[in-house]
Simulated assay, not measured.
Amino acid sequence: MISTFLMVCVFGGLGSVTRFIVNTSVRRWWKGRLFPLATFMINCLAGFCAGIAAAGYASGEVEYATRTLFVVGFLGGFSTFSTLINETMALLRGKQFAMAGLYCLLSLVVPVLCTVAGWLVVNLAH
């Protein structure tokens, strides 16, 4: 149990570092635009990967421990709901109400669709 705990910590750290790298790269490219694309992309990619992992686990191709390390650890560190909320609040403070609403709506719907897409990719490949 303690080794699983430590491994989840390690994978969570790797996910966080990966998020930092992706976030920094996308922000450099997207600079100055209002829509928080980096967090949106990260959460969509995390949803897609979670769908793949869930389908692999459901089909028996992925073991519980592997799914735990990847989904709870890596994707838990990679994806970020708290940053989404913080960016929404920044848009609201900047009186960008329509953009804040659009960002919230897209950030709740599109990652779920990406999860479904990840699930379908695995299931249609069989």
Score class of each variant (00 low, 15 high):
N43M: 06
F48W: 07
E61I: 02
T18L: 12
A58Y: 09
F35E: 06
V8Y: 01
V17F: 14
A53H: 11
L45K: 13
V109N: 13
F70I: 02
A125C: 08
F20E: 10
V112Y: 10
F70S: 11
A117P: 00
K31F: 10
V112T: 02
G15F: 01
G76S: 14
M7I: 06
C114T: 02
T4F: 00
S3C: 00
T4W: 04
C49M: 14
G13W: 07
R67M: 02
G32I: 05
G13H: 12
L37D: 09
E87A: 09
R28H: 15
A90R: 15
C104T: 07
V116N: 03
W29D: 07
A90P: 00
Y103G: 04
S59K: 15
N43Q: 12
T83N: 12
E61K: 15
S82K: 13
R93Q: 13
G15A: 09
A100G: 05
A50S: 09
C114P: 00
L14R: 13
V22I: 12
V26Q: 13
V116F: 07
T18W: 12
I2C: 01
N123V: 01
V72H: 10
N23E: 10
P111R: 15
G12Q: 06
L34N: 14
T68G: 03
G118V: 00
A38M: 13
R67H: 05
G60Q: 05
P36V: 05
V26D: 10
S107I: 01
Q96K: 15
T115I: 00
N86E: 08
A65E: 10
A65I: 02
R67E: 02
T83P: 03
G94E: 04
S107A: 09
P36F: 07
L124C: 03
V109W: 08
C49T: 01
G118E: 01
A46G: 15
G77A: 08
T83M: 13
G51A: 04
E87F: 07
V22Q: 13
F11P: 00
N123R: 15
F97L: 11
M7C: 03
R27Y: 05
G101I: 00
M7Q: 09
S25F: 11
W29Q: 15
T39L: 03
L69T: 02
V116Q: 11
R93S: 06
V72L: 08
Q96D: 09
G60P: 00
W119S: 05
F40M: 07
H126W: 04
Y103I: 01
E87R: 14
A125N: 10
L45A: 15
V17T: 06
A65H: 10
G73P: 01
I42S: 12
N123W: 02
M1F: 12
G77V: 02
K31Q: 14
